[in-house]
Write a protein that binds this DNA or RNA. Structure first.
Lengths: 208, 208
DNA sequence: AAGCAGACTGAACGAGCGTTCAGTTTGATG
DNA sequence: CATCAAACTGAACGCTCGTTCAGTCTGCTT
């Protein structure tokens, strides 16, 4: 799942160079997109930040939307790269879930600008591309579901089987809320306080 | 709070006509915006659906962004008009909260397209206009806070005072999740099932 | 050195779109 | 019926921006 589904064609032959330049393009574009939004960012601006001419930029992509796709893909895989290695399945299900929540919520805090951007601009992607991006969310949900299911099996958690999916969604949404409602929450809570409060509540619900 | 904060100037003198035509404009624009997004909708399209020429349209607004503001304001006040009258404060705090959740969640279901649109396009508004729109969210949070606080006072709910705000946010976000994650949730749950499950969980948490 | 392919340049093109304005219609007034 | 202002029209303007392409530069090969 590290590589994108879609192959975007380019004029340039050298595969490694394409990879390298595209990473530069993404790095240049992501900040502009997050700051100004996709529509208000011009290809010229991206090229300028990228340090090359518009013409060159178009050697590596076909359309402006390709850049959006690359950026979304980049953000999405950054998430994946950060969560996966940080998730330790331990014999103690409570500890495992606590750790997963902590990891996920901290990642959201670090990447809040990207997260908000993803939610706001995915509708500008084609239907197929959007599905691919949503896939990342489903993968994450699956991870939480698995942890909860293990906990139920070993008797740590009490939860109706057909509520596991919903509970996994709740965990994720309560984390994402930190980014989406920062205008309210980040006035009254610190990240640590927020994680502690939400985490305690979720765990208590599962164990009582 | 029914009238907008901002007065948008118009060429037309007759105040009532302005009000009438603007409502027609909003009605025409809102569907197009929800369907295609703000940026991809042209003023010409709106004028056409509105049934008048572009020139006339511009007698009632100054810029395209004015239309966005009018639409956001319209959506926001539709929310307000629907929730407020449906909220009954009863002596039974549990029943009151259950009713409020039910009302709010059903409203989200009905207006899910609008809600998603609001979240996706508010960033295109000016800073002041955005603040005005966020205000609606804060008002709603206040309502839930008040219900919870009453419940704590009359002994129905057990919750640390400094967690009331957070709990109110949780209630709202778990409702909005129905709209934002419909791609996953609305496959596996009915609205009634969803409300019952989330509501039960929230109430249980407050009363146990 | 000559030849050549791959990488790069940026002026130019042209379509799309927000906005305007010179002019027409409408209907109220005297 | 004449007058006039308010409401309406839509072609035209002008600017922005995605995209292209004729031409230049670079460095490798023979």
């Amino acid at each position: 799942m590290d590589k994108s589904l879609k192959k975007i064609e380019s004029q340039v032959k050298d595969k490694e160079l394409v990879e390298l330049r595209r990473m530069e393009i993404v790095k240049a574009a992501v900040d502009l997109f997050v700051q100004k939004g996709f529509h208000k960012t011009t290809v010229r601006e991206i090229a300028q930040k990228f340090g090359m001419s518009v013409g060159t930029l178009y050697e590596y992509i076909r359309t402006k939307e390709d850049i959006l796709y690359l950026v979304c893909d980049y953000i999405h895989s950054s998430f994946g790269m950060r969560v996966r290695p940080a998730l330790h399945i331990t014999p103690d299900s409570v500890k495992t879930l606590k750790g997963a929540i902590d990891t996920y919520y901290r990642m959201i805090d670090e990447m809040q600008d990207y997260l908000v951007f993803l939610y706001q601009e995915t509708k500008s992607l084609s239907h197929d591309d959007r599905k691919y991006i949503f896939k990342a969310e489903e993968d994450m949900t699956d991870i939480f579901e698995e942890i909860i299911n293990r906990g139920i099996e070993d008797g740590s958690f009490k939860l109706d089987r057909n509520q596991v999916g919903l509970f996994a969604h709740n965990i994720m949404v309560l984390g994402q809320m930190w980014a989406f409602r920062r205008w309210a929450l980040q006035k009254s809570y610190t990240l640590d306080g927020y994680i502690k409060a939400q985490s305690a509540r979720l765990i208590k619900e599962l164990t009582s």
